[in-house]
Computed example of a mutant assay.
Amino acid sequence: MMAIAIMTSGGDCAGMNPAIKQFVDYCFNRKVQPYLIYDGLKGLIDGDIRPATYEDVAGIMHEGGTKIRSSRSKRFFEYKYREQAYKNLQKHNIDKIVILGGDGSFRALNQFHKDFGVNFVGIPATIDNDIFGTEYCLGVDTALNVIRQATDAVRDTSSSFKRACVIETMGRDCGYLALVSAIACGAEVCIIPELDYDLNIIGERLKKEIANGRKYVVCVVAEGCHDNKCTSTQQLVDWLQNDIGIETRATILGHVQRGGNPTVFDRLLASQFATFAVDRLLSGEKGGSVIVYNKSEFDFVSIEYVNSQKYKIKEELLDLARRLVN
């Protein structure tokens, strides 16, 4: 029987477990033996590769994270460990892999293919939504809903005490989560690396709004601002308190954004991603590719295309938030 393995690599996100379940169920439907690679690239090197059963994936559709766990591995950059990983796959007659992760994971598998001819399909899975070539990555919708719920809750208490709140979202080099959350939650300020801003201009606006009856302020900032010479979360707190004159609290959401029950949208997209990935590998297509989602349609692109440019947030979205930075 033909065999295909699935693995998760890099940061986890909600939607990975629904993808894993669909992968296993659909492989059995196609008369293919599914395998689970545990602990990402580390498990691939160490040989933690097991044939999947229905029991392995029963009841995981609603769970966040990844049942087969994830990791990053510096060892995989060394040829001898990639060779070891390949020998582990050979023991199970596996020459096809579905990998859920980001562009770094795809590059690792692409090198693996060049070395040993293992075919693979990458499923974009990162809450940062920063992979070039696809409008949407698995896990983003769930992360946005986690942020929305937290921001709404913090706004409730801020309004009770006439306070400002600074909400820090994840997004290492990309402000997508902060941007969309600021728009969806009705924030007054949004600080992300992609938008130029002037605190003096924003401050004048906020002072006028407060004088005209505004009782609280919601400010959403991307964590990437710490590393992109933008104003950090604590600096925004100090600015709001000292310059604007409003009592302020900071909430750093952190890794809570990666967890939680996957939304219906993430569950559906995970199922579609996994199904098309298996079909692609069974079609006889050689090499490595990434499945992408654009304008409500799925397609496949090369790893070289994904790595050819840096992801940029659509101008239409940036335009929606420009009023929050002036």
Rank of each mutant, 00 (worst) to 15 (best):
K207P: 05
G102M: 01
V189S: 03
C174T: 12
S232M: 07
C225S: 10
A5W: 00
A108T: 08
V140L: 15
D115G: 07
I246V: 14
R280W: 09
T134A: 04
Q272R: 14
K80W: 03
R163N: 13
I60Y: 00
C190K: 10
D156P: 03
A153E: 15
Y38A: 04
G59F: 01
G102E: 00
K31W: 02
V32Y: 02
D39Q: 13
L195I: 09
I123H: 00
T142I: 03
K162N: 13
I303E: 00
C225K: 04
Q234K: 13
P262V: 00
R214E: 12
V24Y: 00
G224I: 11
C219I: 03
K91D: 05
L144T: 08
A270M: 02
G259W: 00
Q309K: 15
E63V: 13
A222D: 08
A270T: 08
V180F: 01
A184E: 13
G287T: 03
F112K: 09
G186V: 05
Q149Y: 11
S308V: 08
I252L: 15
N228T: 13
N261S: 14
E285P: 01
S283F: 03
A250T: 08
V218C: 14
C137S: 15
L206G: 03
A178G: 11
F300G: 12
L36G: 07
L44I: 06
G284V: 09
I4Y: 01
D48N: 13
R75N: 09
I183V: 14
R249I: 14
Q90L: 15
I303F: 03
N93L: 07
A250Q: 10
I244L: 03
G117R: 02
P51D: 02
Y311V: 05
E78T: 06
I201Y: 06
G175M: 06
C219R: 05
T151K: 06
L324T: 11
V220H: 09
V121I: 15
F161M: 12
K208G: 06
S105C: 06
I4W: 01
R163S: 11
G203S: 08
C230I: 08
C165D: 04
M61D: 08
T126H: 03
Q84G: 05
Y293L: 10
I60C: 01
E285C: 10
L268D: 09
K31C: 09
R172D: 06
L44D: 02
K87N: 14
G10M: 01
V220T: 07
Y216D: 14
